[in-house]
């Protein structure tokens, strides 16, 4: 998760309570927002005696996380009114244990209320497919138009060297649900977004085999990666003509 969001947001409050750990942060330009939840089910055990916000610089956290092995067990600990976060990595065979403390920061973060939205279009597709489309089209243009209709979803762009588009039609993969593409539509939508941000969101592709795009005309796009016990959501403000 940290790897997926660290290029978008730098200083974040990890809000801890009985439900687990949540994070909401906007990028500096106020165009994209990250919303993450790791429920208690993601941890074993999980204990939180008092609601607490852990202000963490993600670059610092990455420096420490890089010291962990892929299969290590990670324990995160913070005291009441902490000035640091304690991280312990234990190898699966328990023959190696490393321990780090990183300094916490006071982060005065703007919190946005995200209204419950009935989206006009909800598209589910393999996350690798979405990543490929964003990467391919970003070579041609800064922006992509996403047009969803009952026939399919069309990603199109135009730039100095020419233009391009990718159209996906609904498709069911019976062996692997995450490789399916589905489109639920109440009305057609057509919106334009910055590809730079979408390419950035796709760094979360390794967290989930499929991704959900939720769109309504003239509202921010929701890109959701569902995780075993939580989610990573990105909101992106659209580009709108005058």
């Amino acid at each position: 998760v940290v790897e997926a969001i660290k290029d978008l947001v730098q200083d974040c409050n990890f809000d801890c309570n009985d439900d687990g750990i949540q994070l909401q942060a906007m990028d500096n330009s106020h165009v994209a927002l990250v919303s993450m939840k790791l429920s208690t089910g993601a941890f074993s055990p999980f204990r939180c005696d008092r609601n607490i916000a852990l202000g963490i610089n993600l670059n610092s956290l990455m420096k420490v996380l890089r010291a962990a092995g892929n299969d290590d067990i990670l324990t995160l600990k913070a005291e009441d009114q902490p000035d640091s976060l304690n991280l312990v990595f234990e190898s699966p065979g328990q023959d190696r244990m490393s321990e780090y403390d990183i300094k916490l920061m006071d982060i005065d973060q703007e919190h946005l209320g995200i209204p419950e939205t009935e989206y006009a279009a909800t598209i589910s597709l393999p996350s690798a497919e979405f990543q490929r489309i964003c990467r391919d089209l970003s070579a041609l243009s800064e922006s992509v138009s996403i047009e969803a209709s009952k026939d399919g979803v069309k990603f199109s762009c135009s730039g100095d060297i020419g233009n391009g588009s990718v159209t996906l039609r609904p498709h069911t993969n019976v062996e692997d649900e995450s490789k399916s593409t589905s489109i639920a539509l109440t009305e057609p939508v057509n919106l334009t977004f910055s590809l730079k941000y979408l390419v950035n969101f796709c760094k979360a592709s390794s967290l989930s085999g499929s991704v959900q795009l939720c769109l309504s005309n003239e509202v921010p796009l929701l890109v959701e990666f569902k995780m075993g016990a939580g989610y990573l959501r990105f909101y992106l403000a659209p580009k709108i003509g005058d």
Partner: peptide, 14 residues
């Protein structure tokens, strides 16, 4: 071309 909007256009601070 179309202009990039801010999230503040759509979401309120709480």
């Amino acid at each position: 071309g179309p202009k990039q909007r801010s999230l503040f256009t759509f979401f309120q601070k709480v």
